[in-house]
Design a protein around this nucleic acid. Structure first.
Lengths: 190, 190
DNA sequence: ATAATTATTTGACATATGTCAAACGGCGAC
DNA sequence: GTCGCCGTTTGACATATGTCAAATAATTAT
């Protein structure tokens, strides 16, 4: 999962003026460093934490027929969690792997639930995040449905120019739904 | 947009025991009949209503290079609205067309907002619907990313066996991200 | 019922992408 | 520095899907 929305950032910035809220949040949250290769969550486990990326990069993937299929990339200020697993308490369909040394703010879903109950602004932020995430997914779906592989690659690089430096091509190809070789050829042609 | 979740249905059933809530809802809602071919919402308009399908079928689509691209189908008990347009008050990226004579419950987004403020259960239902919708989109994305056209068609028919009778193949093909001819051949092979 | 329109199927061929194999290149371990 | 590993590129060929055109089949209007 991931979100990025100016309105949400503003809401949070304003909310954090409140000392009681700030204290409650920082009591629940915990900063942690992860190293390249670490797994934040493994396929099959239940997602009990929310990871806010303060710096670094993470990729979501699952295994299909013995192959890794990359479902998402998360960068600074994105939130890493399996929505399905966290909300339904079912085994996560995907794993999340740290792609480069990362600084992360960890909040347990349980504590997050209590924060949402106690401070309506957190509930509001959660709802707005869901809306933003769903809209983002709709866009990605449309792109996957009717853009060519080259168009999808160009869109991705336009949105995340750094991605080519941070992530190896095989993962990008998988994310785009094409093979490594096809991506390599797309890049060669320019 | 669409949702379908047992938990949400149960929540609503329970909530409607409350007479005050029931009255408030039915004051806001309005039953309407639409005919095949009617547009519930047109691309470019702002989505100011939510349409709950009591019976019938609706398809979402947008124009790309002069061609219609089908983005979604909605059937009984699905909710029809453009999430992006309704939440951000921006022009809708898609139109919604009635595929067969339909009975619909219409609620203006404004009145819905007031219901959400007044009755927390509506707010809860909205949030749960967003979660369910996002999870549904994630699944559809994975399917589009890594299933063959035939697998996607089989999944669709398994989930909505009626669809082949209700919706013409060109729309189904578009929804699957393939051409009409390819779908026709997939069906022929069995 | 008949004609007109629209939806679907089929065929021939073009294009995009996948698969397998080999070669190339950078980078760290020693 | 050299070796070996890993990621990437390139080539040859296979397969899936798209495009255009024509033929049927189904639906609608008259």
């Amino acid at each position: 999962m991931k979100y990025q929305e100016a309105i949400i950032e503003d809401l949070l910035t304003a909310a954090f003026q409140d000392e009681a809220l700030r204290d409650a949040y920082y009591e629940a949250a915990q900063e942690k460093r992860f190293k390249k290769g670490d797994l934040l969550l493994e396929q099959g486990q239940i997602c009990r934490h929310s990871y806010i990326l303060l710096s670094g990069a993470v990729r979501g993937f699952y295994l299909k027929d013995g192959r890794e299929v990359t479902t998402s990339f998360c960068f600074t200020s994105d939130v890493v969690l399996s929505l399905e697993s966290a909300t339904r308490l079912t085994p996560s369909p995907e794993s999340f792997e740290v792609l480069e040394d990362s600084l992360v703010e960890v909040v347990s879903m349980e504590k997050m639930a209590r924060l949402r109950e106690r401070f309506p602004v957190f509930e509001k932020v959660w709802t707005l995040s869901m809306e933003a995430y769903a809209i983002w997914l709709e866009e990605r779906l449309a792109s996957l449905q009717f853009a060519t592989a080259k168009e999808r690659y160009d869109q991705l690089v336009e949105r995340y120019p750094e991605i080519v430096r941070q992530v190896q091509l095989s993962h990008i190809a998988s994310y785009l739904g094409i093979t490594l070789e096809t991506l390599s050829r797309i890049r060669a042609k320019g």
